[in-house]
Amino acid sequence: MKMGRGVEWAVHSCVNMAWTPPGEAVNSARLAALYKLPAAYLNKQLQALVRAGILTSVSGPRGGFHLARRPENITVLDVVLALEGQEPAFRCEAILGDMPEADRQENFVRTCLISQTMRQAELAWRQALARQTIAGIADSMERRLPGGRDKAVRRLTAGLG
């Protein structure tokens, strides 16, 4: 399965928002500058997270985005589905039904072993992403990169006091 690069950007952005003080909006241009990303494209990803109820958008001179829910209540799967859509990665076209002497009454989408294998793999993938929260990633990043949180927050909130 191939995901767009906006997924990585959005997860990093959510982690940064989890680190900022409660109620503090994070400006998308500052986020884009922090990671050297195209601001307009990042903003598009963040707007998709707003539509999915993951982020809240704040207008005005101190505007930007912040998490709409607690970071422990936002999974990586939530972010992926908000950006990539709900459709399954594999779509069985039931080509077994086109074989000679195929039972036209059979539901090949359900009974095809290839379709079942793909559904099981996607279910495992989705379950793994659903177990990973923004809070968990933020905590792991803090342990792996001591001081990284403080540096990021300073860069994102500099001059906003």
Rank of each mutant, 00 (worst) to 15 (best):
M1Y: 08
M3K: 02
M3Y: 15
G4K: 12
R5G: 13
R5T: 10
G6K: 04
G6H: 06
G6I: 03
E8T: 15
A10C: 08
H12A: 15
V15R: 01
N16D: 12
W19G: 04
W19V: 09
W19L: 06
T20F: 12
T20M: 14
P21L: 14
P22M: 07
G23Y: 07
E24F: 10
A25L: 11
V26E: 11
N27I: 05
N27L: 09
S28C: 12
A29C: 11
A29T: 12
A29V: 04
L31F: 10
L31I: 05
A32V: 11
A32P: 09
A32H: 09
A33V: 08
A33N: 14
P38T: 09
P38L: 11
A39S: 14
A40I: 09
Y41C: 01
Y41M: 10
K44P: 04
Q45H: 15
L46E: 07
Q47W: 00
Q47G: 07
A48F: 08
A48H: 14
L49V: 02
A52C: 10
A52D: 06
A52G: 13
G53L: 02
I54C: 11
L55D: 14
L55W: 09
T56Q: 13
T56A: 14
T56D: 13
S57C: 10
G60W: 09
R62H: 06
H66Q: 13
H66E: 03
L67R: 05
L67N: 08
R70S: 15
N73V: 03
I74K: 01
T75C: 11
L77M: 12
L77K: 09
D78P: 13
L81T: 12
L81V: 10
A82G: 12
Q86V: 08
Q86N: 12
E87S: 12
P88A: 07
A89R: 07
F90M: 06
I95P: 06
L96K: 08
L96S: 06
D98F: 13
D98M: 15
E101D: 15
E101V: 05
E101P: 02
A102T: 07
V109C: 15
R110W: 08
R110F: 08
R110N: 11
T111D: 04
C112A: 07
I114G: 11
S115H: 06
Q116M: 07
T117L: 13
M118T: 00
Q120W: 13
Q120E: 12
Q120L: 13
A121W: 07
E122Y: 01
L123M: 12
A124C: 09
A124S: 13
W125H: 12
Q127A: 03
A128G: 05
A128K: 04
Q132Y: 00
Q132H: 01
I134P: 06
I134S: 06
I134T: 03
G136Y: 06
I137Q: 05
I137G: 02
D139Y: 00
D139K: 03
D139F: 01
D139A: 14
S140K: 04
S140A: 15
E142N: 00
E142L: 00
R143K: 08
R144G: 03
R144F: 04
L145I: 04
P146C: 01
G147S: 03
R149E: 12
R149W: 06
A152K: 00
A152P: 03
A152R: 00
V153F: 08
R154P: 00
L156Y: 01
G159W: 10
G161S: 07
